[in-house]
């Protein structure tokens, strides 16, 4: 019996022309991919691919049968989508947001989940990147917007979105609207605990140290605390939140945007069949960066 997996292997190999890449595209390892191909070739009674020097190429039989495989797989995907749409409960999407994600961006992703996946119910939690990656890996979350770079260990991840950041500085510290990082002297920069996202935090601190050798940092629990310290004249906050402001605090663009907020959507391929159509993730990524 020809299965959905056989069709996925056939199409992925035709598109990638490479066993490793095709296995990755299907979300399996190479041995089951090769095995699946052999089984499919036995079932259709024809060799579909030739192994060449640089990779694999379709045989004439493969070329002739590929359009039928594509149509069959499209029909199966439509069946899945129709089933999801008919389910009165709809799929549940548990979305995780890193605390650094600006509220408006998090809201845009959640709203996009609702509109891109018809009938879905969206629930949202906020947690540090390391915790979110863990929760997506174990299936407690469907997808999450996390800091980049982070150790993802087998999770699927979308492209890196760069969000510009502003410096929130006690009023009257600097005059100009755009400031260079090295001009922000004398006050520590508020940062969240390193353990929440060691790689991303180290990249932030290393970049900071390159541009601004003195001034130091102060660890805060969240942006609310950082903003309050800025208002009290005690710290500088670097934020991607376009709306974060308080009396007595000035907002400044950083020249050349040296400290962008790097965000990525992560999800588990094996646990989220309804996220498979590629345009779903593209639309969610767009919502994150808009």
């Amino acid at each position: 019996m020809i299965t959905e997996r056989h069709l996925q292997i056939f199409i992925a190999l035709a598109e990638e022309q490479h066993f490793g890449d095709a296995a990755r595209a299907v979300g399996i390892t190479q041995p089951p991919l090769s095995q699946g191909l052999r089984r499919l070739e036995a079932l259709v009674g024809a060799k579909l691919f030739e192994r060449g020097a640089g990779g694999v190429a379709l045989t004439p039989a493969g070329v002739a049968l590929l359009p039928y495989a594509r149509r069959a797989l499209t029909s199966i995907e439509e069946l899945h989508q129709a089933a999801i749409a008919r389910d009165p409960e709809g799929p549940e999407i548990r979305l995780g947001l890193a605390p650094e994600v600006p509220p408006s961006a998090g809201a845009a992703v959640a709203a996009a989940c609702g509109s891109v996946i018809p009938g879905s119910r969206v629930t949202v939690v906020t947690a540090p990147t390391s915790s979110l990656v863990n929760q997506v890996g174990t299936g407690r979350l469907t997808l999450a917007a996390v800091l980049h770079p982070a150790v993802l260990d087998g999770l699927e991840a979308g492209p890196v979105s760069l969000l510009p950041t502003w410096a929130l500085v006690p009023a009257a510290t600097v005059g100009t609207e755009v400031v260079a990082l090295r001009q922000l002297k004398g006050l520590p920069i508020a940062v969240r605990p390193r353990a929440e996202a060691p790689a991303a935090r180290d990249l932030f601190l290393d970049t900071l140290a390159l541009h601004r050798p003195d001034g130091g940092t102060v660890v805060v629990t969240d942006e609310r605390a950082g903003l309050a310290m800025a208002a009290a004249g005690q710290a500088i906050v670097v934020t991607a939140d376009p709306a974060l402001i308080a009396p007595g605090v000035g907002r400044h663009r950083l020249a050349d945007d040296p400290l962008p907020l790097r965000l990525r959507l992560v999800w588990s391929r094996t646990r989220t069949p309804f996220l498979r159509p590629n345009d779903v993730m593209a639309q969610l990524t767009e919502a994150l960066a808009s």
């Binding site: 490479h18 066993f19 490793g20 890449d21 296995a23 990755r24 595209a25 390892t29 190479q30 980049h148 770079p149 991840a157 979308g158 492209p159 890196v160 760069l162 990249l203 962008p260 790097r262 990525r264």
Partner: peptide, 14 residues
């Protein structure tokens, strides 16, 4: 660090 790694760069199989 601002770009996504191309697919399969760290694929053991190849």
């Amino acid at each position: 660090n601002d770009r996504t790694d191309p697919v399969g760069v760290y694929e053991a199989a190849s």
